[in-house]
């Protein structure tokens, strides 16, 4: 397991949506190359944590440092951080008016100011990586859910990020498409990418996670390596949750 300087660190992070406290004093560090899987019941704040990491949500208090930059009001900083942090969404959120290839190149061309030819070469490389090189000219609506999610992963990778965030990437997929997406994520993990994944796919978690995080009620209840997490977690709530989702 790689032990390097933390690339993500959250210190006493709290987040309020109006009067509702979504995160309560969350502390978490992620080292370079580390794969962290966050699980927990719905409404436990796990999505909010990763959405705070690239500031799709603003945290109310505490400190978040990503890649050496503290997240604050400074929009230039945030844009710089976002270029280094890829995000994959539950609903894919591909751009429906652009082809697959354009979905992949728009970031490199507009944000990284790469020229078109280079960007397309890059895009084709990552389409290969997610095993759908033949879909480049299609529109997202012509693809299956699993293919769309793989395009979304490739779109993030085209920004050549140092960190990838996954927000329940397989929750909106039909069961037969889940594995094609998980396979791509396993391969990505194998390439040494730093990953923070919110998922209920415990098989995937066991396979790739260096660190398991269990959240409930906006708090981190348990952080443990997967061997310990799945066999002998410290907290009863975590055990109860695992019993529930591993039963079937």
């Amino acid at each position: 397991m790689p032990k390097a300087e933390p690339v993500i660190s959250l210190e006493n992070v709290s987040k309020f949506f109006g009067p509702f406290q979504a995160l309560k004093d969350v502390n978490l560090t992620v080292s370079a190359g580390e794969r962290v899987v966050i699980c927990g019941p719905s409404g436990s704040g796990k999505s909010t944590v990763i959405r705070c990491i690239n500031r799709l949500e603003e945290h109310t208090s505490g400190t978040i440092i990503v890649d050496g930059t503290e997240l604050s009001e400074d929009t230039q900083n945030i844009r710089a951080v976002r270029q280094d942090v890829g995000m994959v969404f539950q609903q894919f959120n591909l751009f429906p008016h652009l082809t697959v290839l354009e979905n992949l190149t728009i970031g490199p061309i507009r944000v990284r100011k790469m020229d078109k030819g280079k960007a397309e070469a890059l895009a084709r490389k990552y389409l290969d990586r997610v095993h759908i090189p033949e879909q480049a000219g299609k529109y997202p609506s012509q693809l299956s859910g699993g293919q769309q999610q793989r395009v979304a992963i490739a779109r993030s990778l085209c920004m050549e990020p140092r960190i990838m965030l996954f927000d329940e990437p397989t929750s909106a997929l039909d069961p037969e498409m889940i594995n094609e997406v998980l396979d791509v994520m396993v391969e990505l993990a194998g390439s040494g990418m730093t990953m923070v994944v919110v998922t209920h796919e415990m098989g995937f978690a066991r396979k790739v996670a260096d660190k398991m995080v269990f959240m409930e009620g906006g708090q981190i209840i348990e952080v443990a390596p997967p061997e310990k997490f799945f066999t002998n977690p410290d907290s009863d709530r975590c055990r109860a949750f695992l019993d529930q989702i591993l039963e079937h």
Binding site: N54, L56, T75, R79, A80, R82, Q83, V85, G86, M87, F89, Q91, N93, L94, F95, I106, G107, R110, V111, A152, R155, S156, M159
Partner: peptide
């Protein structure tokens, strides 16, 4: 809103 979030997440202004 997912379109905004996806575009923000790749660093667009």
């Amino acid at each position: 809103t997912g379109q905004w979030e996806a575009a923000k997440s790749i660093g667009m202004s």
